[in-house]
């Protein structure tokens, strides 16, 4: 049992280094260099009230808003305390019925043409803040009607809020639903 002493003491030493000093140093530097980001990238509306984190999606269902992707978070859509995906398998009959109902709901609310997959398939986190530009475009007519705005103005707004590929080649172009909806509330309350 000659190795028992180093085993116990090494465990204590590394708990101090890796569980204490290391996260403390990261927290210290982060809180000075990137305070907003380390704190959760929270945003405020026009009245200065915190309305959430720009990174965490929210459940919009009113026709005057752009809608996010379906969410499989527990309890309710976009519940930040219940992150997760549907984990539905591709041949699960219940899952296929759910998707069919979403497609129907999309068509019933004025969606035309083919349906972008991201509007009827849930994300991995259940908190995905983005939709594809195509998924935003197919919603423009509905939002314009509900707000009494011109389609063109909304098209421009979507283009202005489309984030391109990061560094020009990473990921895919996308639209942050919460950001664009907050602008809508400001433009045409």
């Amino acid at each position: 049992m000659k190795e028992l002493k180093p085993a116990i003491l090494m465990f204590i030493a590394f708990t101090v280094i890796c569980g204490g000093i290391y996260p403390a140093v990261v927290t210290g530097i982060a809180s000075v260099a990137f305070p907003d980001k380390a704190g959760g990238s929270f945003i405020t509306d026009t009245s200065g009230r915190e309305v959430g984190s720009i990174l965490i999606g929210q459940p919009f269902s009113d026709s005057k808003y752009f809608w996010p992707r379906p969410s499989a978070a527990t309890d309710f859509a976009y519940n930040p305390m219940g992150s997760g995906g549907s984990n539905a398998g591709p041949t699960n009959p219940d899952y296929l019925k759910t998707v069919e109902a979403r497609v129907k709901a999309f068509k019933d609310t004025g969606g035309a043409g083919t349906v972008p997959a991201d509007l009827v398939q849930a994300s991995a986190s259940g908190l995905d803040p983005h939709i594809s530009p195509e998924a935003a475009n197919v919603q423009i007519a509905r939002v314009a009607k509900a707000r009494g705005m011109a389609d063109d103005a909304l098209t421009k707004l979507v283009v202005a809020h489309t984030e391109g590929r990061q560094l020009g080649f990473l990921g895919e172009p996308r639209v942050n639903v919460l950001a664009v909806n907050l602008v809508l509330d400001k433009l045409a309350p």
Partner: peptide
């Protein structure tokens, strides 16, 4: 799912970004 008029890759359980 394509049969239902949905267009695109299999995005169930994937993030947009």
């Amino acid at each position: 799912i394509a049969k239902l008029g949905v267009h695109g890759a299999n995005l169930e359980g994937k993030e947009t970004r």
